[in-house]
């Protein structure tokens, strides 16, 4: 890999880790969604550097749409829609930090200690075309299964989120959130 490639990997890697961290450090829901998108763009750029142009770009394309949907959902359902007020909404904080740091240390140790076989992808090949032939050739069943799963999820998501339910309208008998914070806490 060239010097430029290594530099790009380091820059994008650090950027995607930092922006991923900022997702949970920001006070604004919209910023959180777009920090997450920035993290995905960083990973997408690393994928492009690793000869997987198609996958990297598809990842970015998917995430841009998904993050906007996410921002809309947050403003629809979550508190503090458009503000920058201080916001800490966490539970079991210490356990979560320990789990996060623990999983990082475990995986990083494995990454550094394990001995990986060195068999790099050939330089001259066109991975995009190879992936296309693989998707619609030998591994068509896998690809089609993913498609069928997505179709099932579309139907399932509409069924779950729809206003109608098995026992009448889904919001029948629903409870408005209490306006009094003390009552909300109890």
């Amino acid at each position: 890999m060239s010097v430029l490639g290594v530099t790009a990997i380091v820059v994008f890697g650090v950027a995607s880790v930092v922006t991923g961290w900022l997702v949970f450090r920001t006070d604004s829901m919209v910023r959180a969604a777009y920090w997450l998108m920035a993290s995905f763009v960083g990973v997408g750029a690393m994928l492009v550097t690793l000869d997987s142009q198609f996958l990297g770009l598809i990842l970015i394309l998917m995430m841009a749409g998904e993050m906007t949907i996410m921002a809309i959902f947050m403003v629809m359902y979550m508190m503090n829609p458009a503000g920058l007020n201080p916001m800490v909404m966490v539970h079991q904080h210490r356990t979560a930090i320990a789990a996060g740091v623990g999983s990082f240390l475990l995986l990083a140790t494995v990454a550094l200690v394990a001995d990986f076989p060195a068999d790099p992808a050939p330089a001259g090949a066109d991975p995009t075309a190879e992936l296309g032939f693989e998707l619609l050739g030998r591994s068509m069943l896998v690809f089609e299964s993913a498609g069928v799963a997505l179709l099932a999820v579309m139907i399932g998501a509409v069924a779950v989120a729809g206003k109608w339910g098995r026992f009448g309208d889904a919001d029948a008998g629903s409870v408005e959130p209490p306006l009094d914070p003390e009552e909300a806490a109890s």
Binding site: Q53, L57, L61
Partner: peptide, 15 residues
Amino acid sequence: SAGVVLFGAAMIIVM
């Protein structure tokens, strides 16, 4: 090699 996907991704991020 994935030029139109690059274009599509850029135009979706306009959102």
